[in-house]
Amino acid sequence: MLQTVKSTSFLSAPLRLLAVSVAVSAALCAPLAMAQTEDYAEVNRLMRAGQMSEALTKADQYLAGKPRDPQMRFLKGVIQTETGKPTDAITTFTKLTEDFPELPEPYNNLAVLYAGQSQFDKARAALEMAIRTNPSYATAHENLGDVYAKLASQAYSKALQLDAGNAAVAPKLSLIRNLFAADAKGVRPTTVAAATPPAATPAASTKPATATAPAAAPAQPAASGAAQDEVEAAVQAWAKAWASKNMQGYLGAYAPNFTPPGGQSRKDWEADRKARIVPRTRIGVDLSDINVTVNGDRASAKFRQAYSSDNLNVTSRKTLDLVKSGNRWLILRESTGS
């Protein structure tokens, strides 16, 4: 039920800052930045490959030199979580919240760990802190919805004197695990994307080539108007499939080379989406303020998405990047935020 937050997306803010300095000022900053991101990427890669002890060793080596570094400490916390050391992980994330109280992700992952120990009051407090630090933090909202549901269920069981024994199954919260998830704080301005090639997945790196190719095609206003309608229809169909839990239609709306957020594999991402969508008894996805720009066989749809489910109501800005494939517009990239 509950989702573990899988990415250290809190770093998008510091990174954006970094990106600016790279772009604007001297080149000597760049190697440093690159070195850092390479270290993170390497730890991430080891984690994805399941080489947790190597990942931990690498993270510890890095932290020996930079003990305060929030991102590596975060990754270390994720590794500790993944390797079944919740107490250590709680310590790591707790210290992160103390040192960087403005970051919502450590609170979120702390909540995941508490929920895993059925300490839902603590989980709730942590998630409420995550949301206080970032009110539009969708993952924390969704996790908090699950924790509220759990707490309400417990309260009702106490009220009705039902045996809470079978209710002790902990909901599964999302742990933020990887870098650069699109789903969290999500502000992914293009500068960041440009500044973070090392983290981009191989699938994404193949794309820019094709992206430049059709740039010649655009100057046809009439066609582009029709294309806008097509894109909007595709986006609405995607929302409809999502709301009706039509997983085939929903997943089919994504291009084969879609970039899953947070460097997830397509397979993991699909499993994740299924786990998030199928169990809901009710999902509402209403789109408004849809703004489509078409550029040849590429398009971008920006809109306001009102998502509601059994236990969550969240309105957020979303951007879908689409590519035309045959006569269909398919989603290449999905990002939350303005």
């Binding site: 309400a152 009220a159 059994d310």
Partner: peptide, 15 residues
């Protein structure tokens, strides 16, 4: 118990 019931309602009301 009644307080728990109302508490449950208020938690549910968050969602």
């Amino acid at each position: 118990h009644l307080a728990h019931l109302v508490h449950g309602d208020l938690l549910s009301l968050q969602m």
